[in-house]
Design a protein around this nucleic acid. Structure first.
Lengths: 230, 230
DNA sequence: AGAGAAATGTTGGCAAGACAACATCTTTCT
DNA sequence: AGAAAGATGTTGTCTTGCCAACATTTCTCT
């Protein structure tokens, strides 16, 4: 039952299933963490990567005044550490914390980095996958930066919703956030967000119920958010 | 005289100089652009990469209301398009515009993507470089996100300055921005920024003259910003 | 050196949004 | 079903920061 997640994992895409199970799996170490366990702390050197099998990992940044900001959340199938092992310092700037009971499969980074650690062909595929993984990650960060670069609250909401609508191809879609999470993602006050959403609905810009949104001003928007990544 | 920039270029690091000049250079196309030329527009498919030889490229995001926000600026030695060719859509979400008279050396993306387009060894090195290039890029975006996640203007300034100080290793350093550029980078109002800087100096937090800053509260800060990339 | 231009600092009015406190609606658990 | 917990919406107050307009300094060019 484990391989189903691994096969869906972006990093292992296009690897022969037999290789995945026979050669790669035995090299991984299965680890379990309790809720709130710290997997990575700021400054930690990271020379491994891991695939989330069960649970969720939260990536967060802690500031001098004690406040934290949630940067990302990695569910099953996502990889942890892949963004760090190739940097020059190989040190993490963030915390990675288990949100629930967590189960991961951990591999030594050398598998990707050291030539010859794996059969050449497999390593080529893996690195290729790593490349697109990082690129898409980059793009996601670019999008979020574009959102946070917006000065006004309404603009942030609008840019976010427009992005989603174009990404899915429909003006109606569900977002993966609760109000509180959306507020954290947009870096705005939760109640102000609720307020603004109501106002936008009153003005006929959007319609929403729970986390299902419909963008009504469809005609006027230009199509800039052409990204296809998830 | 061209190779000096290419040798300093992160993407070409560790390539034998002879290979660089004899094999790689002939595959590139030299291009010149006038100030304000658009190299990449949102939605454009990008299947090439280019090294900036002279001048500067501005990466900017244009929004529905016509306002733009500057996301990045690439000087000589930096590469353009390397963040896009490996994404799934291979389409740009941003504008790339020549800030000055610009000169670049452009290569087909296939050199990196298609196996066999170059001698295996060279391609391995190139892909490895591309990997760290993307990773460091990722990290830079992470840092900027951490800054923009700050609610208050003072916090943004403080996080930025602390990052710089730790990155350089001294509490006194020069930043590569004018006030206006710094304001754009932090996504705040320029005059508000000036105001806040003055106040912080009055409170004894920092000292500054032009773009040389000194962080005075050195002792109290924790060392989280351990990044070493530029 | 002197004049113009560009960059930076300063001020006050005003709007946007943070925050707290409360109201209402949903979900979950027994 | 009923109670409790959680999520979301609403309202009012007060701070922050945007904006515009102006003052001052620094840079550039001849």
């Amino acid at each position: 039952m484990v391989p189903s997640i691994l096969r869906a994992c972006r990093l292992f895409r296009d690897l022969p299933q037999e290789f995945l199970e026979q050669r790669l799996l035995p090299l991984g170490t299965s680890r379990e963490y309790a809720r709130q366990s710290v997997l990575i702390a700021p400054g930690d050197p990271v020379d491994w990567f891991a695939v989330v099998l069960r649970g969720k990992v939260q990536i967060s940044q802690i500031f001098s005044d004690g406040t934290a900001s949630l940067m990302d959340a990695l569910g099953p199938g996502y990889t942890l550490g892949t963004d760090l092992i190739c940097t020059r310092s190989r040190r993490s700037p963030y915390y990675a914390v288990a949100a629930d009971r967590l189960e991961v499969l951990q591999f030594p980074g050398a598998l990707l980095l050291e030539p010859g650690a794996l059969p050449g062909e497999a390593q080529t595929v893996l690195r290729r996958n790593l490349l697109t993984l990082l690129s898409d990650d980059n793009l996601r960060k670019h999008y979020r930066l574009a959102i946070l670069a917006q000065r006004g609250l309404r603009d942030r909401v609008l840019v976010y919703l427009t992005m989603q609508a174009e990404r899915r191809g429909t003006p109606t879609f569900r977002i993966p956030f609760s109000r509180e999470e959306l507020a954290a993602f947009l870096c705005v006050n939760r109640s102000a967000l609720s307020h603004e959403l109501s106002r936008m609905e009153a003005e006929g810009l959007i319609r929403f119920r729970k986390n299902e949104f419909t963008l009504l001003s469809a005609g006027k928007r230009r199509s800039t958010w052409s990204g296809t990544e998830e």
